[in-house]
Simulated scan of single mutants.
Amino acid sequence: MAELELPLGADLERAVAAWLAHLRHERGHADKTLEAYDRDVRQFLAFLARDLGHPPCLADLARLDLKIFRGFLASRRRAGTVSRSLARSLSALRQLFRWLEAKDIVENRAILRLAMPKVPHSVPKPLTVAKAAEVVEARGEAELDWVNARDVAVLLLLYGCGLRIAEALSLKTKDAPTDERDVLRVVGKGEKERLVPVLPIVREAIARYRELCPYQLEPDAPMFRGAKGGPLSPRIIQLAMQRLRGELELPATATPHALRHSFATHLLSAGGDLRQIQELLGHASLSTTQAYTEVDRDRLLAVYDAAHPRS
C-alpha cells in the first residue's frame, strides 16, 4: 500500500491525528474501526496528492469540490472496491470534515452532497433451534477431555449469552459466572459495558472446563486457554465449528458468529422485546438489532394477525 505512505502537509497530519484521537477517547470507537477510518482517509489523501501534484494541506481541503470526491470513489470502484467499503470510506471522510468544521479548522460541505453508495442488504443467517442445540451438545467427550469442555463452554457463551467470539475469549477468570453470580459483565465494542444473564447450562459448562483445565487460571488472565496454555485463539473455535459443519451437515453459514445471530433470533421468536435484545447484544443502535425482525418475519406476522383488531 505504497500510496498510503505519501506525505501530508504538517498541519493536515496533525489534524488527522487529532480527529482519530477524538474518535478513540470521546466517541469510544474500537481499534479496528479506527484503523479502517485512518486507512480510508489516507487513501483519499493519497488520491488527492496525485491530483494536486503535492502533499495536501488543510488549505487544499477547503477548496475541494464535489468532482474530486466523485473521482476518488470512481477510482476505488475501478480498483474493485465493493460498495460496502466505499460507503465506509465516504462515512469516514464525512466524519472528518464535520469534525474539522466543528473545530473551526476547515469548512467544506461539498462531500455532504454526495450520495452514499447503495449497499446490498444482508440479513443474519441463524441456525434453527434444533441445529443450534446439536452444536452445543455435539462435543460428547466434554465430561473427560478439557479441550472439548473448553469448546463447549465457548460455544455456549456465544449461543446462550449472545457474546461475540472476541468477548467470550477475553473473559477473565475472576469474571466467570458462578452459582452465586449468574450475570456476566461484558466489555464490547467501543469499550461499552453490559450485563448479560447466564443460564445454568452455561455456568455448568464453564465450571466443568475450569475443573478439567490442566493450567493454572490466574484471576486476571484470560480464562480460556489454548493447547499450550496461552490465550485461546478465535481461529481454534472457528476450526471447531468447521468440523461440526461436516459432522452435523450444517450450512456453510454456520460460523461462531451465527450462534450469536441464533441467540437473538430465537429470543425474538420466543417473544423477546427488541430493545432488551439490543441491550443483551450490546448494539449501539436499535437499527442494527432490527435486522433480526426480517429473519423472523413469519413470527412477527403471526403476532400481528393474532393481536391486531382488524386482522
Rank of each mutant, 00 (worst) to 15 (best):
F72E: 05
T33E: 09
R63W: 01
H22W: 12
P234M: 09
R245C: 08
A306D: 13
A205R: 08
V196M: 03
E180D: 14
F72H: 14
H54K: 15
A227G: 00
G140S: 12
D51M: 08
N108D: 07
V41N: 01
V123K: 04
L158M: 10
R208H: 03
D11C: 04
E191N: 15
F69N: 06
D104M: 05
L4R: 09
Q216V: 15
K67T: 13
L155Q: 01
L158A: 07
H22P: 00
I165L: 15
S83Y: 03
R88S: 12
L301N: 08
H283Y: 03
S269F: 00
L45K: 02
Q238S: 13
M241V: 10
M1T: 12
T255D: 06
G282S: 05
E13M: 01
E101R: 12
P56F: 05
E191T: 05
I236T: 15
G230R: 10
V196K: 03
R14M: 04
A15V: 06
L93F: 07
A227K: 14
V123N: 04
A205M: 06
H261E: 03
T288A: 14
F72I: 09
T33Q: 07
E35I: 07
V82E: 15
Y292L: 04
G188K: 06
Y209T: 09
K118C: 03
I111M: 06
A74S: 14
P56R: 05
R181G: 09
D60F: 06
L248C: 07
D151M: 08
P309Q: 08
R245I: 05
L259Q: 06
L163V: 08
Q216Y: 12
F47E: 02
D51C: 01
I201E: 14
E180L: 13
V106L: 06
Y292N: 04
E247L: 14
P55K: 10
M223P: 00
K32M: 10
S233L: 08
I68N: 01
R164E: 09
L64R: 12
R139A: 09
L300T: 05
E134K: 12
F69E: 11
N148A: 12
E193Q: 10
E211H: 13
A46K: 11
T178G: 13
L58C: 08
Q278C: 09
A221W: 11
L156A: 02
R109P: 00
H25M: 09
A15T: 06
G28T: 02
P200I: 08
R84V: 13
A36Q: 05
R84G: 01
A18L: 13
V123H: 03
R77A: 15
D179E: 15
L169E: 11
A270Y: 00
T178I: 12
A142D: 10
W146S: 07
S89N: 11
E143H: 11
Q95K: 09
G53I: 11
R76G: 09
S122E: 13
L61Y: 02
E13H: 12
R203L: 07
P126A: 07
L286H: 08
L163S: 07
A264H: 02
L66F: 02
F72Y: 15
I68E: 15
H54F: 12
A149Q: 02
L100T: 06
A2W: 00
G71N: 04
R225Y: 01
V106A: 04
K189D: 09
L48P: 02
L8E: 04
W146G: 06
A240V: 15
E26W: 01
I206P: 10
A2F: 00
D305A: 11
L127P: 03
